[in-house]
């Protein structure tokens, strides 16, 4: 059953006189893995930034069906969007962009620390994630002592340790060789959509896109093809109603799963390289 999670309508984004997004409509459903593709300058990263609340669009709305009710990202303040990114979304960037002085487990635990978790709990949960992603035994390594693929797995753990069910990835395999890319994409897909979570990936790599359940292609800031078909005319995620509380932003406690770590794993996960 398709449950809409994120609904962008008529998104417009401009950088000075350049139009990066020219009226984008997109509905992302729970449990989907959506690849956003396009040439350089087509607006794919801009779209990701608007969908995830990093950028506020110049026109249009982005509605997110949060655990405590629908939220319109475009009306939230910077601080509220920052909190939403920290507590409801996960991010994986092209190059892990982890804090180099911290160990793998400390990097993965960072979002939990920022949300006020006790360090011991945060690191235990992060270690469970690292273990499930095939990094058992590497918890105390510093980032400079990890390979590119391993660092990217730490980034994947960091993105989800807070219980985020919507993960945004910007060229997650862009800096890796092809064999490592396959492994990292495996880890990313199994830890997200494998758990019924949602993944939005910006990529220029057809092989990465082929592994996603849906491919959206952009040209000049507009969607030119969508393997799921056109957006239905009716708003998929309802607008935040009057019943919504004064602070629609979710809290960490509200959506973090009660379990102490990832609910996946198995023999295949131990073979991380």
């Amino acid at each position: 059953m398709n449950t809409p999670l994120l609904h962008a309508s008529s998104l417009v984004l401009r950088y000075g006189s350049t139009t990066a997004l020219a009226g984008v409509d997109l509905v992302i459903n729970e449990g989907e893995s959506v690849a956003i593709m396009g040439a350089s300058g087509s607006g794919k990263t801009s779209l990701l930034h608007c969908l995830s609340g990093i950028l506020r669009p110049d026109g249009g709305t982005v509605r997110f069906a949060g655990p405590t009710g629908p939220v319109d990202l475009s009306t939230l303040s910077d601080g509220e969007r920052s909190r939403l990114r920290r507590e409801a979304f996960g991010f994986v960037f092209q190059q892990g962009l982890l804090v180099p002085e911290l160990t793998a487990v400390e990097n993965a635990a960072l979002p939990l620390l920022l949300s006020g978790y006790a360090r011991r709990d945060a690191e235990a949960r992060a270690a469970a994630w690292l273990g499930a992603l095939g990094l058992r035994g590497l918890e105390e390594r510093r980032i400079g002592e990890l390979s590119g693929g391993q660092a990217q797995r730490v980034a994947i753990a960091r993105a989800q340790v807070g219980g985020a069910t919507l993960i945004f990835a910007d060229e997650p395999t862009g800096a890796l060789d092809s064999a490592t890319s396959v492994d990292v994409m495996d880890a990313l897909l199994r830890s997200t959509v494998g758990q019924g979570h949602t993944l939005v990936v910006v990529t220029h790599d057809e092989k990465v896109a082929a592994r996603c359940s849906r491919v959206v292609r952009l040209t000049d800031g507009q969607i030119v093809s969508d393997s799921a078909g056109p957006v239905p005319p009716r708003a998929a995620v309802p607008a935040p109603g009057a019943f919504a509380g004064p602070s629609p932003v979710t809290t960490a406690v509200a959506h973090v799963a009660a379990t102490d770590g990832p609910a996946f794993g198995g023999a295949g996960w131990e073979a991380g390289r």
């Binding site: 995830s52 920052s82 920290r86 979304f89 960037f93 962009l97 804090v99 960072l110 979002p111 920022l114």
Partner: peptide, 16 residues
């Protein structure tokens, strides 16, 4: 620069 921008994106407050 890149690291700080990415930390901002994952929701780390500037004050932190």
């Amino acid at each position: 620069r890149d690291l700080y921008v990415s930390l901002d994106r994952v929701g780390m407050p500037v004050a932190t």
